[in-house]
Design a protein around this nucleic acid. Structure first.
Lengths: 139, 139
DNA sequence: TCTAATACTTGCAAAATGAAAGTAATTCCA
DNA sequence: TGGAATTACTTTCATTTTGCAAGTATTAGA
């Protein structure tokens, strides 16, 4: 477990992965525009670190050379169960949680299915390179 | 998910909970003696924070008034699935992982059972106030 | 009552973070 | 073709957090 904490042992790394999964973030400016407000230097640092550890990849946007695209690797996608468990815990214990009962039941009763759904939706969103302005229901 | 990161968004908090679950740590000196080497001020700070957020409780050791006992609350125990998913991910992707194949199969195939086992073992260890020198197999 | 043990707190240097401004590469548009 | 705008960073510097070492308070035991 020390291994995962070396890589993700700070809140920004987790939030970057969450934003990729649940909001379809795949460009620098998407992350910058995200709610929590990362500093640009921290974001660059974390994207580099996550890339070095093989959780995400970087490539030039073939349609716009001044943009880069960030995507989760299989190793990164493998974090979905961990992240959904954290989402679930937050949903149960955060007094200000905004998760619907429906979603919570889903996470409680059909966890593995939820993992698949998140993964499939992410892969689809990557294909269409769509970024949703509003959040994914699991966020 | 912001909620859990507010509380556990640094590696020490996670490691403290892990040490409680898998090594039966329940006293200040246990945490200090633990492998990773927390600084005493950081440990005190995190124990306070975790207590304020209701993940652990502090009480005087009835048998030794100069010691305090730290125990996980239900809210803290509820983190077992999250932590085991992180352990599982580390087991799969850490090139230097020391987890046995048996344990990995357990986590892969009978996750919910593993969660129960960890919880029951923790509660038992609390009753007997035993701290294991060697690690819990899931560590 | 003196000493040891335990659980902290304090002080200070070093590292990490955050905000603001600057830079480099690319594209858009006149 | 050349200047402005976009995007993805980097740099600088003040503030915060961390980590180490040393000190303190309370309790236990001889």
């Amino acid at each position: 477990m020390t291994y995962v904490l070396e890589i993700l042992g700070d809140k920004w790394s987790f939030l970057i992965i969450r934003d990729m999964l649940f909001r379809g973030c795949c460009r620098y400016k998407h992350f910058i525009e995200s709610d929590e407000g990362v500093a640009t230097n921290i974001l660059a640092n974390r994207l580099k670190k996550l890339t070095q550890h093989g959780l995400i990849t970087q490539c030039k946007d073939p349609e716009n050379g001044r943009q880069k695209l960030y995507h989760l690797t299989d190793k990164g996608l493998d974090l979905i169960p961990s992240i959904l468990q954290l989402v679930k815990w937050s949903g149960h214990h955060d007094p200000h949680s905004v998760l619907s009962e429906k979603i919570m039941h889903y996470l409680d009763d059909r966890f593995d299915e939820a993992v698949d759904i998140v993964k499939q939706q992410y892969l689809q969103a990557c294909d269409h390179e769509q970024v949703s302005a509003e959040c994914h229901p699991f966020n």
